[in-house]
Design a protein around this nucleic acid. Structure first.
Length: 235
DNA sequence: AAATTGTCCAACCGCAGGTCC
DNA sequence: AGGACCTGCGGTTGGACAATT
């Protein structure tokens, strides 16, 4: 069942396609009066021949008054890069860190700007350098650890579980060293921002290998923690 | 000037998870 | 317990417009 009704198309009684100014007005009026939610009942209450899904999408992506119009700024782009490295394609999660931007907007931006592009030579160099540093640091720490272990064994000291637990903060510090992204993050007023990320290498140098911590953060993220909460767990 | 390619944006679809009855 | 319904998310598509060849 498909037909035409002015602009857009009628499918099974539902209008599809571009929204008209009149439809927008009706939707805004409804949300102002009743608030967001109950999208499926909107058609019954207002006479709009739009599905609940369509109404929600229109409101969230276009009509919400707190939406920020205009192009993504370089600062926002850096945040998107950082958070995408951290969370992958969780656009809605990323969008929560960018007030006024929608998941759809960020998703579209990512696809046009980064999806197809391969890392530049500079980025690859930065990545290689970062990996090398990481390996060297890891090796160094491992050697130190073994040395300390040997000394402890020599003294015949047995660590209790409580004492082991007390080492945890030190390990956290090491992790923070290994994953410098977290130290680049600056916090304030409930929203996060990143250092200006002036050079491409600088940004990517901190991004590579975030997959390693991605899984660790995954659980916390799903648990509703903010990025700030998650990063703070490393300190 | 016309054709091609790239970018931006709005909208739809399918799926998954949560809630209610 | 489980089915129906609602909501939100991520993937995808398609049109309009701009830039490039």
């Amino acid at each position: 069942m498909e037909g035409h009704s002015g602009w857009g198309t009628l499918v099974d009684g539902w209008r599809k396609g571009p929204w008209t100014a009149q439809e927008d007005e009706i939707l805004i009026e409804h949300v102002n009066q009743h608030g967001e939610g109950r999208w499926n009942s909107i058609s019954k209450l207002t006479g709009l021949r739009r599905s609940g899904k369509s109404c929600r999408l229109r409101w969230v992506n276009y009509l919400r008054p707190d939406l920020k119009r205009g192009k993504i700024t370089p600062h926002e782009e850096n945040i998107i890069l950082e958070l995408h490295a951290l969370w992958g394609n969780r656009w809605s999660t990323i969008a929560r860190s960018l007030p006024g931007r929608t998941d759809n907007e960020i998703k579209n931006y990512w696809r046009t700007h980064f999806k197809k592009s391969k890392p530049s030579k500079n980025i690859e160099r930065a990545r290689a350098r970062f990996l090398r540093q990481q390996q060297e640091q890891h090796k160094l720490k491992e050697e130190q650890r073994q040395e300390e272990q040997q000394q402890a064994d020599m003294r015949g000291m047995m660590m209790t579980q409580v004492e082991e637990a007390a080492l945890a903060p030190q390990e956290m510090q090491e992790m923070a060293y290994m994953y410098p992204l977290t130290s680049m993050l600056q916090w304030g007023g409930g929203s996060c921002s990143v250092s200006d990320g002036s050079s491409e290498e600088e940004v990517w140098g901190s991004l590579w290998n975030l997959d390693d911590i991605h899984d660790d953060l995954d659980g916390a993220c799903r648990g509703g923690l903010t990025l700030q909460d998650q990063v703070l767990t490393f300190y």
